[in-house]
């Protein structure tokens, strides 16, 4: 167990470093544009040079990277080019919003995928299976931002059930918070559930066909007990792996969903960073999302190991 965690962690750190290099290089390859974005298009060459010198942008890239990395490791992501405020506090106030959205969406996705996937597997090739498979196909073809638009149209504008956008923190008013979060979480979660549902169904079909399930049935276990007690644990292993990746992708989706529902999260910060070419903001926000994704993958790798001891040594690479 400890060995597994250590192995995964040993792979985690270099991946994270490599990711930060890629992001840093990607964001910094366009020379001069940051200065232009900060100073306006009619900035003089002298002003641009001064800005680049002040921000340390005229140094070699690797020096800039090491400097940035050293500070980032101490939790300092620099100051915004636009409003000259430090980026880290901004990140910290926005992170809970995005985390809450991603977790709620993931819960929605699982609440749809696990029962429906298992039900479909139980009636493999029969009516329920066909209906569920059709549902998964349809849900997988709906882009999340269109689903968000439809939800706003129906539940906010027509029925007036939920507010169309905005944010109130959980601490301030849990009920108001949930009523504001429910549509964003549904738009992300429903679309994500399509793939999870297929994985759950396929995994469950495979497990239900195995010998130990036949034994359980032969010994007189009821159908629900066979599915939920005996089969689920094994069916969850492939499901978890895909689930972790899907959770990461939910984080990608927050950029667009936060924009639609006016949620002040990291996703909005990514967008602001891009539109303003505000590199410190862009780097810090994209890196935060990537760390969240990698951490989710790490956690699931370990969890899958706990669920299935075979996993511990069967996979030589992470």
């Amino acid at each position: 167990m400890l060995r597994l965690v250590a192995l995964r962690l040993a792979a985690f750190v270099p991946t994270l470093l490599a990711t930060s290099v890629i992001l840093f290089v990607a964001v910094n390859v366009v020379p001069g544009s940051a200065a232009k974005a900060a100073l306006g298009i009619d900035a003089t060459p002298q002003a641009i040079a001064r800005f680049e010198h002040d921000q340390g942008l005229d140094r070699p890239l690797h020096v800039q990277y090491l400097d940035w990395l050293g500070k980032a490791l101490r939790g300092d992501f620099g100051t915004s080019f636009q409003n000259h405020l430090p980026v880290s506090p901004e990140l910290l106030t926005r992170l809970p919003v995005t985390l809450e959205l991603a977790i709620l969406a993931f819960i929605v996705a699982n609440l749809i995928a696990v029962p429906l996937g298992a039900a479909a597997a139980r009636s493999h090739r029969h009516r329920t299976d066909q209906v569920v498979t059709l549902l998964a196909t349809v849900m997988g073809a709906v882009p999340n931002f269109w689903l968000a638009t439809l939800l706003i149209l129906t539940f906010a504008l027509k029925l007036g059930l939920f507010p169309a956008g905005g944010f109130v923190s959980m601490a301030e008013s849990p009920l108001r918070n949930l009523s504001l979060m429910i549509m964003p979480a549904l738009s992300l979660g429903i679309v994500s559930s399509a793939l999870l549902l297929r994985i759950m169904r396929a995994g469950m079909i495979e497990v239900l066909a195995s010998d130990y399930i036949r034994t359980a049935v032969a010994k007189g276990a009821t159908a629900p007990r066979v599915v939920w007690h005996h089969a689920l644990r094994n069916a969850l292993i492939p499901f978890l792996t895909v689930g972790a990746v899907e959770f990461g992708w939910l984080f990608g989706g927050v950029v667009i969903i936060e924009d639609i529902f006016l949620l002040p999260g990291i996703g909005q910060l990514v967008l602001v960073g891009i539109i303003n070419r505000d590199y410190p903001v862009l780097l810090a926000s994209t890196l935060t999302v990537t760390v969240a994704v990698l951490t989710a993958n790490l956690l699931v790798d370990v969890l899958a190991g706990i669920l299935d001891p075979r996993e511990v040594y069967a996979r030589p690479r992470t």
């Binding site: 997988g140 073809a141 994985i199 396929a202 990746v245 899907e246």
Partner: peptide
């Protein structure tokens, strides 16, 4: 794991299970 599309929906990702080296 069955008929898992690799690029469908939000999922360029099933891959992780499919082609895992």
């Amino acid at each position: 794991p069955g008929n898992v599309p690799i690029f469908s929906g939000s999922a360029l990702t099933a891959e992780k299970t499919l082609g895992d080296p």
